[in-house]
Design a protein around this nucleic acid. Structure first.
Lengths: 239, 239
DNA sequence: TTACCTATCTGGACTAGACCAGCGCTATTT
DNA sequence: AAATAGCGCTGGTCTAGTCCAGATAGGTAA
């Protein structure tokens, strides 16, 4: 009869998880340095890091490139049915949104985008790349691709605000049918860079293809979320 | 002017990804042993492993516990709107489904399940745990929790088939409103064990709360998918 | 033929270090 | 007071191994 001895990684995970769940380490607070922690748990930094990566996978902690490890705040509820735009959604949940434009320009459409927007080959599209925060924390990198036909001069407007509101105010365009595609995957380099996370961090890719109130295919978004930042919900009736 | 030298891990990832995408390593085929690969890329096993874990995060490869690394097959399309049961969905996409019952019994409901099914404290529920395969590969671990009031004697039926069909045939119950909740997270131990993956592998948790055609809350499922096995889609009109 | 045993191969887990690059604070300079 | 240069600390990346346990396949005995 021998005792079941759990792996070191598991032991560390459980210890940290317990501390987090009992509120000793509040959301947003910083963990001690990896070297400190590896001393505390009497193990190698490699082993300790493996435990941290696990907790990251569970969504309990996250890292900021070369700054340290932090306790994850609660996930944002993302309801596919009661969709509103980012700012409204975040504020409705009592949190503080922020948006920052990374780039915005007219450019040749890639094959993928031509497909999504049903444009002929060699079309031009308006690409808008933005990074978005909840309570200061970078959580979302989005690439918007707009059919330029419907949005003349949009590049001259302030794109730090909600596109949904710009559409309504300047173009009288509102969202009608929307198609979502969700894929759990690693963040690609552009997204990882914009969100200041190490490349290859787990993420959730949500692609949206949007029609307007008149059924025209107006734009699509590629959203890359930190995987621990949201939980998606949907209510479907009468399948 | 110095050359930008990419990290070893990135180099390995790109090399393998290129081989995979050009079909030299077809879906389901096995990669060489880690030790072999680390020789091929002239690096440590630890570094090589890090690259493999990255490709796993991207969903390009997966591992089977102590058996090796394999190329991931295409993702299953999981449409929230046009929902059918697992077997029908898999077959409709030209693939071969299989289900295996792990356990099925009447037991006291946990607090979480009481909440989801709106049952009073200390209620009993029928728990059915199953593992499901696509083309032989284990991809999904599900825990079903049924309100026993609506499903007398169900434990005496063959639970390897579709529950949806059992409901219809024996109880005249069909799904009406369904609520989905999706959270990217690491697979918990039960799921990892059932799917024979190493604990802490990335996964997608989909919780469903199901009403029947008469609006009664009949059951809920906790689905744990291998994160690289599905992509979820939904079409929403008139937001 | 069948059942079992065993050697070998695989991934899983871990040790004990090293060097580098970016962040942030401090002390200096302007 | 503001700009800057320096430096220490942090995570990021990598080396070169070890030991262990499950999976597999080949051979041996019933």
């Amino acid at each position: 009869m021998r005792e079941e001895m759990p792996r070191a990684v598991t032991t560390i995970c459980n210890a940290l998880q317990e501390q987090i769940e009992h509120g000793l380490l509040p959301p947003g607070s910083k963990l001690p340095a990896e070297r400190k922690l590896s001393e505390v748990f009497d193990t190698t930094r490699i082993t300790l890091r493996e435990a941290l990566v696990q907790l990251e996978a569970r969504g309990l902690i996250y890292r900021e490139e070369r700054r340290g490890w932090f306790i994850s705040p609660p996930r944002l509820a993302y309801d596919l049915m009661r969709r509103s735009h980012f700012h409204a959604m975040v504020q409705a949940q009592g949190r503080v949104p922020a948006t920052q434009v990374i780039s915005a320009r007219l450019q040749p459409a890639s094959a993928v985008i031509c497909g999504l927007l049903q444009l002929p080959a060699l079309s031009s599209v308006i690409q808008i790349c933005r990074a978005r925060r909840i309570d200061e924390r970078l959580v979302l990198y989005v690439e918007h691709y707009l059919n330029p036909e419907y949005f003349p001069q949009i590049l001259e407007l302030d794109l730090n605000q909600s596109l949904t509101e710009l559409y309504a105010r300047h173009y009288d365009i509102r969202y009608g049918q929307v198609r979502f595609e969700m894929v759990p995957t690693a963040l690609p380099v552009e997204a990882a860079g914009a969100l200041k996370v190490s490349i290859g961090s787990p993420g959730l890719r949500i692609a949206r293809v949007n029609h307007d109130q008149r059924g025209r295919l107006i734009d699509c978004d590629l959203e890359y979320w930190r995987h621990d930042a949201i939980h998606v919900s949907a209510v479907v009736a009468d399948i």
